[in-house]
Design a protein around this nucleic acid. Structure first.
Lengths: 222, 222
DNA sequence: TTCCGCTGGAAACGCCTGTTTTAAACATTA
DNA sequence: TAATGTTTAAAACAGGCGTTTCCAGCGGAA
């Protein structure tokens, strides 16, 4: 199975380098030389650099969506017809995110890639992820809506993205933060430790009191 | 003042392009042609592309630190000797962030640049910002520590970065999120509107209950 | 064996990058 | 006026980039 080996070695090497330096800053030559495969192998197996980037994401996101759908199926079966508490939904998502990379790959790399997907320009990536994996996110937000009926739709939308920002930002910038934290507090921080700290913060953020209505409305009748 | 004009035009053009595409994806030729300036002018005035990137940040961060120090001076004078409430500290920071770009530049660009500073590799940038502007952040965190004495040091450290992640992530990815929000909820969202929504969430996150201690401790006596 | 499709290695293709160098014009200051 | 610091123009530099091409080797099928 030398053919599969080359593809795997490219993907393994690429995901690490992408996570460390970003997409534009990682050349195909760096990837292929570090993976000890020929330069042309990337274009041969994947077609282009863009396609390689998408393949790196697929290898994480495909098993993630499968598992997440299954986990949500189970959760809905347990609470047959009723609403699923918000904390169970968040818990399930966190558990699934942790499970997937634990098998073969690094959770740190996975989170860094997610962070890059948001921040790097790479319009094609955002489009690809949205089209390919948008449905599972929609299903999740629908369940969250039923769990938090008191929240206005717009408010819930923004708060979900607030906590998404917290998680991705923290876990993708973990290395730099960990260096500071260990220097100042002499305390080693694992990813699971961080998730333990994140949980109450995320729950509190979702359950925060509603903001006051906008101060002044310029339009309409005086 | 043709000399100043060239420098300003380069900075004005560069910051917009950097914010839109990132650093590596923006070439000097793109900047200079869009700014209608000679290609050599960048290396003449700034020395290198790295130095140009740092200059773009300095133009925002220098006035920010000055204003923020002043604002903290006033705050400390008001609460002479006593502790400043957490919400006033956060409020002051938010107000200062809003004030600075409001003068000449775009708040959106400023936040996008901050997001890039975190996510893009550019090791030199993170080092530059930390060395140049680390002290004002240290002063702020010291005040936060006095305002939240019940929080363990490590917990406060992480929570500050959690909310930092929320704010930077949200405001730097604002365009993409706004598109989705307007399509789904037919509601225009301004930056100030977003900050109104962020306030209660951030406060609730900082005041969240402490996480349970780690499940299993391997070391020490049984 | 002969053929074929898949994989690999090495080199080259244009193209774009940041930077430097030349030159000549312009403005400002002394 | 002379000198100095800016700006423009045009060109070239060396190097890296993604991509393509060509050819040698390979395994299994006819």
């Amino acid at each position: 199975m030398a053919q599969t080996d080359t593809v795997t070695r490219i993907l393994d090497t690429a995901e690490v380098l992408f996570a460390e330096r970003g997409f534009a800053e990682t050349s195909l030559r760096t990837i292929t030389s570090k993976a000890r495969v020929n330069l042309a192998a990337v274009n041969y197996h994947f077609g282009s650099k863009k396609a390689l980037i998408q393949a790196v994401f697929s290898r994480y996101l495909d098993p993630f969506t499968v598992r997440f759908h299954h986990a949500l199926d189970e959760l809905e079966a347990q609470h047959a017809g009723g609403v699923i508490p918000l904390e169970e939904l968040l818990e399930t998502m966190a558990r699934t995110v942790l499970e997937v990379p634990a098998e073969k790959h690094s959770l740190k790399v996975f989170m860094k890639l997610l962070g890059l997907a948001y921040s790097q320009a790479q319009g094609h990536l955002r489009r690809y992820i949205q089209e390919e994996y948008g449905s599972v996110f929609t299903r999740f937000t629908d369940l969250v809506r039923r769990a938090t009926p008191e929240l206005p739709d717009a408010e819930r939308f923004w708060r979900l993205h607030f906590v998404l920002g917290t998680v991705i930002f923290t876990l993708s910038g973990l290395d730099a933060l960990r260096d500071i934290a260990e220097k100042d507090y002499h305390e080693h921080v694992s990813v699971r430790d961080l998730i333990r700290r994140l949980r109450p913060v995320v729950v509190a953020a979702m359950n925060a009191p509603l903001p006051p209505p906008p101060a002044v409305q310029p339009a309409k009748a005086s």
